[in-house]
Nucleic acid binder design. Structure first.
Lengths: 204, 204, 204, 204
DNA sequence: GATGAATGAGAATTCATTCAT
DNA sequence: AATGAATGAATTCTCATTCAT
């Protein structure tokens, strides 16, 4: 559940100046990742973009991958927060409303920083991002609980598979749209179509 | 639509010996990729595993990434062929049957070489695999044609979005299952659940 | 005869607190040198072990090597003191007694801090320790004076070479024993054997 | 008895060109060591002086220390060879002749490459040169055997200590002369004085 | 054509030293 | 005076690629 030691902060930045520096480094990594890809993201380049010396970088991060992981974590946490807000807003609503809210929230989450999202999912997957799995697992648990709660009102019989599908499918559809035809995400018809699919599946 | 010149074969292997060598190199790349990841796949290592000198490698491939691309292409072509056979078999069947066939075919396609599939999607995505897009686009065209052909018998109104969703969702669900809980793919209930979702969506 | 300016204290520690700090730093350097060798003795590490900030270290020492030199100086001065006490005790005794005392004193001097002695002679020789030469030269002068004083009672004709040999050989034999088979130094037979060699050489 | 794997050749140079290259690298290391010391002997510098690329250096040597060790080994082997020739020449001679030969051989051995000898013993000791111990141990065994063979004709009672002393003392005296007053080594009186000491010790 | 030794640009990382606080 | 965060020059080492044999 914890990242390998080589991917964690070497020491906690205690003073506000160091916290800002760490923040700057993560931000610089994100920018370099988007602009030049993982291969172009050398520690020297990142430090330069962050306006910091390499030495300072290594004071806090044990290496390049720790920075990249930090970027991924920050990004997925932001996305997750947004989704959770949506979830909270949908509490107690009828299934169709909940699902429309979920789809809308997913699209909003992907709109947070589309370029970075693409960069992370394309450039950084090989690091075995545990965050992604964690986020998905958490989402699955929430959806599963909701399905249980709906009882007879929903069609699927295998709620575990159903929760897996709802989360995976929603994320994948939005993700694929973002990467291969972003204009779809602007089109309300796409959102409707996806929501329709899920609503018919869940029933009610 | 064509790969960058740096990713294509430098010259066509004409004699059977050279064709075998090229084949060996691609195979070696696949194995190294699975075993050691993209970073561990040095050209020297690949040549060694293929039982060939680096020099010979460079006679046919302009560089490391060309080999990796060749692996990806070979893999996705194999998957596509399998899917096309399924599609052909489903020709003229009622929607529910076609969709069940499609889901089954997708699972079969992912079973061709799961370890390599994982390696490619995790390690090699950053090369901007156009094959993937091409395969998906082709699938989308086929599905779109089919939906048109079905006319009133299917529910979705926006057939373009619908085709996109059907392809994306099926692939994503199977892919996600493969990567994060492969045992789901063995479970017929999972296949049913996914097919149910799509059938209810398409209607009929 | 004076150490290069880069190896001397930057300023004299006047107050007792600073004197203690300088002392702590030298002690910490000795400990780090023994434990981690010259390469592992970074100024940051030394400061940490001394419980002092790097900044303070640089207030008094112009750099890493100055600390190392200070350690060496302290060590060789301690050894020399012990030897001088022995010399004083042997004053006026017959040659055989003087020589036995000298050998005994040399062994005692090497027993002061064998681990540090090893560390210094193995790790620090490359700094061109002038202390060593100074100590040897001083010893040679004392021995030469004694040989002169003995006049006809000693065999060697070339007293200069003889003094050089007596000092060098005694130190080297004890030093070599310490480094490659320390148990010899516990064995009185070794001490006797060495003394016998020197006594037969000097004669009387 | 074997050097750590980090200090051995990565692969044996089989062809004459590679053997020459390895030879050049060792030679360059020796020269750089003499001229700039251990700290100044960076792998890039060594490669440059050898007229070879760093990459080639790393094909054969795992790192800087392996080169340095190779230099030390070559040097001590040369010295040892010379000493062995002397030993062979003295075979069967009376003790005084043998000892004079031994002293003479030791001086000759140190004259092989005095500058390099100094560089190695000053700069490289911290690597824990096992060669030195091996050479000394071998010498001790030879001397011990000789002492045994001499039986009653020699004075020392503890032959083990005696062998240790003879080897250590001879080496140390010559070594010390070389480092702190090389002109002594030119002076036949020095050689005589040292030989006298050993002859009186051994007796006969 | 095949070989694999040689190349060298470039990446990661450390650590002696400074200087703003 | 004391601190320790920040610096960046310098070093090690790898690996994609070439080219003489």
């Amino acid at each position: 559940m914890n990242a390998s030691p080589a991917l964690q902060l070497r020491k906690q930045p205690l003073q506000s100046r160091s916290r800002a520096m760490v923040e700057d480094l993560v931000e610089a990594t994100a920018r370099v990742l988007v602009a030049e890809g993982y291969a172009g993201a050398s520690t020297n380049r990142i430090a330069e973009v962050a306006g910091v010396s390499v030495g300072s970088l290594y004071q806090y991060f044990p290496g390049k991958d720790a920075l990249v992981m930090a970027v991924a974590q920050r990004h997925f946490r932001q996305m997750t927060e947004l989704l959770q807000q949506t979830a909270a807003a949908a509490f107690g609503q009828p299934p169709a409303v909940v699902i429309r809210g979920f789809v809308h929230g997913m699209i909003a989450a992907h709109a947070v920083d589309p370029a970075l999202h693409r960069a992370i999912t394309e450039q950084v997957l090989h690091l075995g991002l545990e965050v992604v799995d964690e986020v998905q697992a958490a989402a699955r648990r929430v959806v599963l609980a909701w399905l249980h709660q709906q009882g007879e009102r929903v069609l699927p019989r295998d709620l575990d598979h159903a929760a897996f599908l709802l989360v995976t499918v929603t994320e994948a559809a939005v993700h694929a749209a973002l990467l291969s035809c972003p204009e779809r995400l602007q089109d309300p018809a796409f959102e409707d179509e996806l929501a329709d699919m899920l609503i018919r599946y869940v029933g009610g």
